[in-house]
Amino acid sequence: MRTDDRARPAGIMTPRQRRAAGLVLRYAALLALVPFFVGPFLWMLSVSVRETGNIYSLEIVPDAITYRWYAEVWSQYNLDRAFLNSVLVAILQVGSNLLFCSLAAYPLARLRFPGRRLVFMLLLSTMMVPFQLYMIPLFLMSLRLGLFDTLVGIVVPSAAGAFGIYLIKQYYETIPGDLEEAARIDGAGEFRIWSSIMMPLTKPAMAALAIFVFVQSWSNFLWPLIIVNSEDTWTLPVAIAKLSGDFIDKTQYIAAGSVIAVAPVILFFFLAQRWFIGGVTLGSVKG
């Protein structure tokens, strides 16, 4: 024992011990960070089930739990409508993005035609332009087109996007050319080649894009805030913002509404985690 001590004075560990200690430290840090990231949601959840008297008291699990705020905010404050609208907008936005981006990316990746680079650069250049620059003309235009206060009006400005085109185009470019050539020799039309051969091969990219667009659409706030006027067309973020404005005075309503708004997306995230994170990966690595 003595020799061991002399060889390794206090504080110096074997590599193995060091690795174990590092692992313990790492897990400790990982655990310590969890409340920081999910705490605010838990606190909101906790507030949403409280009676009014003690909504600000410190315990995470209150003594008296009530779920009535959920039922009330859902039906009385038209959150059911907002939820339905959010779902419709998401379906429409995801659908149109998949279709438009997939269609547009195909010739940009696989066909040769004059102006290809130019079109691609032009489409891509919209990524540099902040939405806030053109939201006013867009708003004025939407008024004239009868899109004001409609769900289509919410979707249309982001029905297709440069990021989606870029993402799918990168993926198309990784597909070897033989399949396509064979089909072409068989006399298949380009649309046929795209719809039955090429497009189905891009499923991973499409899935990533779908999730990316879904999250964006579900959270989109500034544009709906401007283009929506009535409760018939409001989406969840707009509804929550209104609730937490001066619309109502029950903190629990806002908290309950907030939980209703984020719970589906969080659940969906935990089920399809791989695809969520895949989108970031596909988007950030240059092809």
């Binding site: 998949l98 279709l99 009868g146």
Partner: peptide, 22 residues
Amino acid sequence: MSAPRTALLFLLAVSAGLFACG
């Protein structure tokens, strides 16, 4: 297959419905 065509029709139908709503 006409999956994209079906999707397109579906989108058009949904859009028309939403326009009507608004």
